[in-house]
Design a protein around this nucleic acid. Sequence first.
DNA 1: AAGCTTATTATACGCTTGAATAATTCCTGC
DNA 2: GCAGGAATTATTCAAGCGTATAATAAGCTT
Lengths: 220, 220
Amino acid sequence: MTVNRRSYHRASEAERREDLIAATLDCIAEFGIQGATVRQIATRAGVTGGLIRHYFAGKDQMLQAAYRKVMTGMTETAIAAAIEGENARSRLRRFIVANVTPPVTDPRTLSLWAAFISHIQTDPTFAAVHRENYLAFLEALETLLTAFFREEKRAVGPQECRRHAIALNALVDGLWLEGTLAADLFADRELAENALTSVEALLRLAPGELSAEQQQKEQR
Amino acid sequence: MTVNRRSYHRASEAERREDLIAATLDCIAEFGIQGATVRQIATRAGVTGGLIRHYFAGKDQMLQAAYRKVMTGMTETAIAAAIEGENARSRLRRFIVANVTPPVTDPRTLSLWAAFISHIQTDPTFAAVHRENYLAFLEALETLLTAFFREEKRAVGPQECRRHAIALNALVDGLWLEGTLAADLFADRELAENALTSVEALLRLAPGELSAEQQQKEQR
DNA sequence: AAGCTTATTATACGCTTGAATAATTCCTGC
DNA sequence: GCAGGAATTATTCAAGCGTATAATAAGCTT
């Protein structure tokens, strides 16, 4: 006797993996890492649990893939915002602002980031992904800074550029983290304005050198 | 027929709770939040699992207590370091340095912090503890800053003090986080020096105004 | 030294988890 | 249009989880 079975769609490997990862992120954002069980994820993706192990060696590998996606997404959002600037100063400013503005500053993004951060200490794969992304972010910032100093005709050595990049990265990370965790404590543009003012100070620029331009952008 | 039972020590409520929390933190640091099961924690504490529910309403409540302990520990370490300074400038410097120096900068502390951070979005109790601690840290910083500016005879309004406190907090948090996550990327005193230099810049101080004093401390 | 209270142990229960296996449906190449 | 292989489902499994309950050992009171 044959059992009633669901009819299903046979998807390509690429889109199926994408769907599964998206479902994983949805579950993590909604229920936390503990609520992201194989069954929940499968339900969200509209498949049954067994399929996950057909595309990933195990649940852990799927989580790693999901982490990769989140992190590259965050970095690329900021980089994409930067390259639209017409000069080095504008690109630097846009990069900073993008990191303390939605969609990077977003409860969901924070939930995902927070859910994964603890795995970095435990799982070497997570550690590698984090390292890779941290260095990419740092290098992007360093490149923007070097171009900016050249544009401003300020002679700043490479290792001082790196020192600045580390500090700026820390500032932006911290503002992003606390600002998103306690979004209700900050007014709409308070975070971005504080970021720009602080970056001006960190780079020893004149007050308004970065943030004044911001207002022009706002008005048009 | 009577069964062989372990002999045990009857502890006071205070020390038993302390032991259980300590065991919880040990397990989290060693195995991650997923490895911190009731049985593991009980084993580490040298008791049986059932006892946990004699001192806490459930595992969640014990985790909350553990989180409280970690966070207050971090903040108090920095505050304790600050109050030993002989003037406002020294207190500010010590506060900053303490936050990017062991035992705050420590893989274990980071593991614990990271394990809990994701619960803030899910569990209201965790959210409250975080909020409370963030505001306490911010206020401590704000107080140090106000005293410092007065000592320097600089007229700085309260809301500009607060803006500075938010930025300094973000910088310190970011340096702490990335510096501890990627400890191998930074030389011994690099983090502290970068922190002091950056704080000088953020407060628009002359270069060396904070960090120079640091070197005198080191030499004696 | 006996008795009372309770901190602690031991054991069991019900549930969920990630993973394994076998059956079935879908799609492609002929 | 029909085989054959692969994607997907359905079901099962063993392990581990947090919790509940009853028995027991410990220490205090008198």
